Simulated assay, not measured.
Amino acid sequence: MTAIQSNDLCLSYGETCIFQDLNICLPKGKITVFIGSNGCGKSTLLRSLARLLTPKSGQVVLDGSDIATLKTKEVARRMAMLPQGPSAPEGLTVLQLVKQGRYPYQNWLQQWSKEDESMVQRALELTNMKHLAERSVDSLSGGQRQRAWIAMTLAQGTPTILLDEPTTYLDLAHQIEVLDLLFDLNVRERRTIVMVLHDINLACRYADNIVAIKDRKVWAEGQPQDVITEELINSVFDLECRIIEDPLFGTPMVVPYGSGKQPGQLHGASDTETPAALVV
C-alpha cells in the first residue's frame, strides 16, 4: 500500500526548476529516507509532499486523496511535518509546545478535551520528556529540544510523519536516541515515517525504503541492500567507497575515501614506504 505518491510533479523556485515530472510512491507503514548531496532537492521534495510548497504542476496524493483538495486541518490530521531547525517563542514551555500539536482538532465548538490531554501526555511519555514539561524550550539541550519538537509532532496523532534532518546538530548518542524513537513508533504503531538524513549508514540501518536524489530527479529507490552500491555512492555523491556489511545489523555500510589518504595507507607513511606490518 502507498501512503504518499507524486504524479508528474514539477517543482520550482521562481524560474529555477527543481524537479520535473517526478513520480514516486512511498510505502505505507514503512520508514523511507531521502539521501543525496547538499542542494539536490531533498528538503524541497519533502516540503512539497507536506503541501508547504505549491507545485508548478502535477499532484501529491495522500492516502488516496489529492492533497491540494484537502482542507488544511484535514491534512494536519493525516500528516505531521517537522522542519529542519524549528524555533519556539522565547519562554514557551515544553508542555505548551506539545499542546500545539492538538491545534488541528480544535474549533469554537470543540475545545480542549480529555483525548487532547491524553495524546499530549502520551507524546511526552514516548519521548521521555514528561519530567521536563515545565521547562522552557530554549533552556533545553539540543537533544532534549529535538525530542520536545518530536513530542509535539506525535501529539498530532497522524499516521504519517515527515521530518527534515531530525538528527542535525545532535551528537551521535542523541542521533541514535531520536532514530530509535522513530523506529519504535514505526514498529509498534505502524506509523509511516519519511525523513531526510545525511548519514548514509544510519539511513541504511533504519530505512525500509531509500530514495537517492541527484540532478533534480530520483536516481534510485528501493531497499537499502538493493540501492546502496559503490557505483551509486560514486554517482550520487562523487565519492569513492567500499560497501561492507554492518557487523551488527547486516545492512550496507559505506566506507568512504577520497583522493588523499588511500585504503591500506598507514597514518604518516609516505607513498614509497612499505608498512612494517606488511613486510613478509
Score class of each variant (00 low, 15 high):
209 N>Q: 15
205 R>Q: 15
208 D>C: 02
227 V>M: 01
127 T>R: 06
204 C>W: 03
251 T>D: 08
201 N>F: 08
6 S>N: 08
257 Y>I: 02
271 D>M: 12
90 E>W: 06
97 L>F: 02
182 L>E: 02
278 L>F: 15
98 V>Y: 03
4 I>Y: 11
224 P>R: 02
189 E>Y: 15
185 L>H: 10
108 W>N: 03
140 L>Q: 03
149 W>L: 07
118 S>C: 08
275 P>Q: 11
247 P>D: 08
102 R>S: 10
150 I>Y: 05
246 D>E: 10
16 T>Y: 04
48 S>R: 00
212 A>H: 04
187 V>T: 09
12 S>F: 00
40 C>D: 00
258 G>T: 12
21 D>T: 08
104 P>Y: 06
234 N>F: 15
272 T>H: 11
103 Y>E: 09
196 V>C: 11
246 D>L: 03
124 L>H: 13
279 V>G: 01
193 I>G: 03
238 D>C: 08
217 K>V: 00
187 V>D: 03
196 V>A: 07
273 E>K: 06
71 K>W: 07
159 P>H: 09
109 L>I: 13
9 L>Q: 04
160 T>A: 11
153 T>E: 06
47 R>T: 06
61 V>S: 07
249 F>A: 11
35 I>E: 02
203 A>D: 05
170 L>D: 01
72 T>Y: 10
254 V>S: 04
280 V>Q: 13
